[in-house]
């Protein structure tokens, strides 16, 4: 068995270990691969198709995020077909969803020279805000159906399976089961879906409120890594503090305990640290 695989990426030879993906191999040549649905701690969903590349011998383009690298593969990343597909992915999503907080999508549109208005004017994902609990809101007009939230809620982390994709085609959407409100669903409010959402469709209530009031200030935020004060698991927390108040809690994606995931207490149970003046 070879434990090293040799591929060519745009004519450049590269060697990667067995078990690498095509994306890994491309990155080994110091190129970056645009992605929307891919997340380092989740199984590839293969949904967005922003990472497609041309593989010699393959009729269609292949998703580099999930395709296992094989010895002898010849990959092209800048052919007309690749660039067209990536640009179209950006244009289709921009024509559908509100990309205000979808920074990866904005980036994809920028690097592909997408014309965000090309396919607009048709159906969109415009829909009412779902504000049914005090911890996070769902603004699904921003959703790009990347599946990250479904996977984080399911077997890639939380194993709660409170949400899934329902409906099909253009009507496919994230649902908490039978169209229920979250408080009636199986949701346990761990917020791991919020943590992996790349578009702001799922967003903490505090952040949402501050943004609505125009008081969210990226420059004024400090981020400090510490450890959760609840149970003995020892989850790493990143406290996002604005004007001496904790406004958001996340966890580093590369932390060996959490892999970026937290429970409801760690993510939302911080208010006790800042009740004052009683």
């Amino acid at each position: 068995m070879h434990d090293q695989l040799r591929l060519t990426i745009d004519g450049v030879n590269v060697t990667v270990p067995q078990g690498s993906t095509v994306k890994d191999a491309i990155e080994a040549t110091n190129q970056s691969v645009p992605t929307l649905c891919w997340h380092e701690n989740l199984e590839p969903a293969n949904a967005c198709r922003a990472c497609v590349v041309e593989l010699k011998g393959s009729r269609v383009l292949v998703a580099s995020c999930s395709r296992a690298a094989e010895d002898g593969m010849e990959i092209q990343t800048t052919t007309e077909r690749v660039l067209n597909s990536r640009k179209l992915v950006a244009e289709l999503l921009m024509s559908t969803s509100n990309a205000d907080l979808a920074f990866d999508l904005q980036h994809l549109a920028e690097i592909t020279g997408a014309n965000p208005g090309r396919f607009s004017g048709g159906a969109t994902w415009e829909r009412p805000l779902q504000d049914d609990n005090s911890l996070y809101v769902r603004d699904m007009a921003k959703c790009i159906l990347c599946y990250r939230c479904v996977q984080a809620c399911g077997e890639d982390a939380q194993n709660t399976f409170a949400i899934s994709v329902a409906g099909r085609g253009f009507e496919a959407h994230i649902d908490a089961g039978f169209g229920r409100e979250l408080p009636e669903s199986d949701c346990v409010y761990c917020g791991n879906c919020v943590a992996v959402c790349p578009t702001g469709a799922l967003i903490g209530k505090t952040e949402w409120n501050l943004r609505q009031e125009g008081r969210w200030n990226e420059e004024g935020l400090t981020r400090t890594d510490t450890i959760c004060s609840y149970c003995g698991v020892g989850c790493a927390l990143t406290l996002h503090v604005l004007d001496n108040r904790i406004v958001k809690v996340t966890s580093p994606a590369d932390h060996p305990v959490t892999h970026g995931m937290l429970c409801v207490k760690g993510r939302y149970g911080y208010e006790f640290a800042q009740v004052e003046g009683e």
């Binding site: 408080p183 409010y189 609840y230 939302y268």
Partner: peptide
């Protein structure tokens, strides 16, 4: 002491 301060839906 810690957990009854935040507003959990449950």
């Amino acid at each position: 002491v810690q957990s009854n301060v935040y507003d959990h839906p449950h």
